[in-house]
Simulated scan of single mutants.
Amino acid sequence: MPRRVITFPCEGATLFGTLDEASGRTGLLIVSGGNEIRIGAHRGMAWLAAQIAAAGYPVLRYDRRGIGDSEGDNGGFEGAGPDLGAALAAFREHGVDRVIGFGNCDAASLLALDGRALDGLILANPWVIEAMDDLPAPAAIRARYAQRLRDPAEWRRLLTGGVDLGKLARGLGRMLPGKDAGGLAQRIAGGLRGFGGPITLLLAERDNTAIAFADAWRGKAFDAVRDRARIERLPSASHSFASAEDQLWLREKVLAALV
C-alpha cells in the first residue's frame, strides 16, 4: 500500500508524519515513546504500520515537537498532548472516521492522560514509574529478588561478597509497602476513568516497566477501570517487542483491537 510523508501544524510548529494508506475507515494512530522518532525502536513501528495497512487499516505515525523531522521544542511525553491532538485532526482529514491510538511506554501513558478524543486505546507497557533514583520500580525489584532467591548461585554470591550490600539495602527499602502508587499512576487511572471507548493493555510480563504497571493496576485507583479493559500478556522481557515472535504477537493483538 502507498506510504507517504505528510506535515501538519501544532501550536506554530510543523510536525512530520508518515501515512500508510489503506481502504478502511478505521485507522491506527501510532504514538512514539521516549524520544524515539516515528520509525520506532528496531524499525518496529514502521514494520507494524506496514503490517496493519496491509490488513486494510490506514496508519499514521508522527514525530512530536522537537523530535526527528518536526519543529519546536521537545517537552517530553507530558507536554505532548497538543501534538497528539494535532496528529489526530490531521488523520481525520485524510478520510478516517474511527481512530484507535497505540503507544508503548510513556506514549501509552500520554494516550491514557490525553487520548479522550480517540475511539479506542491500545496501551503497551504503560509508564507509571516516578523518577526517584537509579533503581527500578518497587514491583520490578520484588520480582527480581523473588527470582534470585530461587537461584543457589545468588546465595553463593551473597556469602562470598559478590553482592553490593549498599545497593541491596536501597533496593530492599524501595520494596516497602506504599512505594508504588505514585502521582503518575493516579493520573493515568483518572484519565482512563474518563475515557469512554475500549481499552486494550499489552504487557510484556518480564519487562520492568510492565511489571511496575501491573502492580499499580491492582491498586484502588484502577478499580473503576479494571472491568472495562482487556489485558493481553506476553511471556517476554522485551520492552519494545523486538523479536520476530514478539512482533507477530503484537501485530495479532493490535489487529484484534481494531475490529
Rank of each mutant, 00 (worst) to 15 (best):
R4L: 09
I6V: 14
F8E: 01
P9W: 10
L15Q: 02
L15F: 05
L19P: 04
R25L: 10
I30G: 02
V31S: 04
G33A: 00
G40T: 02
H42N: 15
G44T: 11
M45F: 14
W47K: 15
A50V: 05
A53P: 05
A54Y: 08
A55I: 03
Y57S: 01
Y62Q: 01
R65P: 00
D69P: 03
E71K: 09
G72F: 03
G72K: 08
G75P: 06
F77P: 00
G79V: 00
A89W: 09
E93W: 06
D97E: 15
G101E: 03
I122E: 04
I122S: 00
I122N: 06
L123Y: 03
A131I: 10
D134H: 14
L135H: 10
A137F: 02
R142E: 15
R144T: 14
A146I: 10
A146F: 11
A146T: 13
P152G: 11
L159I: 12
L159G: 11
K167E: 13
L168P: 01
A169C: 07
A169H: 09
R174P: 03
G178T: 02
A181R: 11
G183I: 12
L184A: 01
L184G: 00
A189I: 06
G190V: 02
G191A: 07
R193V: 08
G197I: 02
P198S: 10
I199W: 00
I199A: 03
L203W: 05
D207T: 00
A221T: 10
A224S: 13
R226Y: 09
R228P: 01
R230K: 14
R230A: 13
R230E: 13
I231Q: 14
R233P: 08
S238F: 09
H239P: 06
S240Y: 11
F241V: 04
F241Y: 15
S243R: 11
S243P: 06
S243N: 05
K253I: 07
K253R: 15
